[in-house]
């Protein structure tokens, strides 16, 4: 029991989310394991993105969004009043659907996070951080000679890896990925997937995807969302080979969604 507990990184209990009068999530109970890739699948609008935005409280930025229930990370409540979102988000990085590099140089894109958190105040320390982050994101070799060029000038796949590097730059424990490959071509997607496989050694990763193939390729555990409810969670193998729920079966075989 004790051992099992320490394996769980994030745990949500009876999580409900409302946008104004509309309920977006109903009683979500989900456990996400440490240093593993958890994939969330489901038809669009089912609440997958809403769920991961609750983990780093990105939903705070939406005025009409109201969250109740609990999400714990390492046993600590995320929605607690005393939790500082700034430190929370330092610990939980996020990568978005569309690559969103800042209109700054590649270097400054990575250095932004460490600077605001006061890490790497010396120039050579910062250089080191930029280098390691880019290396972890498998982008270093492609951009090391043009660190001062704008990040917006990179290709889509490179931009997305830059965003991953940006998320890594502040040494997070968890990385949330909201359909990171949906706007990329297959080659760039393959690169990102390879990267995710690599990153799971040191980070807990939650990835929202609508490609079931991708979920199979990258994740160890999969959760299936439908209409704001979680239908089934299990190991990826089990979900795709032998789902317990009829609806999951229908979805993965492509009958709806």
């Amino acid at each position: 029991m004790e051992l099992n507990n320490s394996k769980i990184k994030i745990k949500s209990k009876n999580l409900n989310v409302y946008y104004g009068n509309k309920q977006a999530l109903h009683n979500i109970n989900l456990e996400i394991n440490n240093k593993e890739v958890t994939a969330l699948i489901g038809p669009s609008g089912c609440g997958k993105s809403t769920f991961i935005r609750c983990i780093n409280r990105m939903n705070d930025t939406i005025d009409i969004c109201k969250v109740d229930g609990s999400i714990e990370i390492d046993g600590k409540e995320v929605n607690d009043k005393n939790v500082d979102v700034v430190t929370l988000r330092e610990k939980i990085g996020m990568v978005f659907q569309k690559p969103n590099p800042f209109p700054k140089s590649i270097y400054d894109n990575i250095a932004y996070g460490p600077t605001i958190h006061g890490i790497g105040e010396k120039k050579d320390e910062m250089d080191k951080i930029v280098e390691t982050s880019l290396k972890k994101a498998a982008l270093w070799d492609e951009v090391k000679d043009r660190l001062n060029e704008p990040g917006t000038g990179l290709s889509g796949g490179q931009q997305q890896r830059l965003c991953i590097a940006r998320a890594l730059s502040v040494n997070p424990e968890v990385i949330l990925m909201d359909e990171p490959c949906s706007s990329l071509d297959p080659i760039a997607t393959a690169k990102i997937e390879e990267l995710i496989d690599d990153l799971k050694k040191s980070y807990t990763i939650v990835i929202v995807t609508h490609s079931m193939a991708q979920a199979v390729r990258v994740s160890q555990k999969t959760g299936f969302f439908h209409l704001g409810k979680i239908i089934e969670v299990d190991t990826t193998e089990k979900i795709f080979k032998n789902p317990a729920n009829k609806m999951t079966q229908d979805y993965i075989t492509g009958r709806f969604g």
Binding site: L88, R89, N100, P103, I116, C163
Partner: peptide, 27 residues
């Protein structure tokens, strides 16, 4: 200024004013 830039900044743990000063105003 697109919301995605704000999201990017908040996601690495920037406060609102840091986001405004360092991302939104330059953009």
């Amino acid at each position: 200024v697109p919301q995605s830039l704000r999201d990017g900044s908040y996601a690495v743990g920037a406060t609102k004013s840091e986001t405004i000063k360092k991302v939104i105003i330059p953009a």
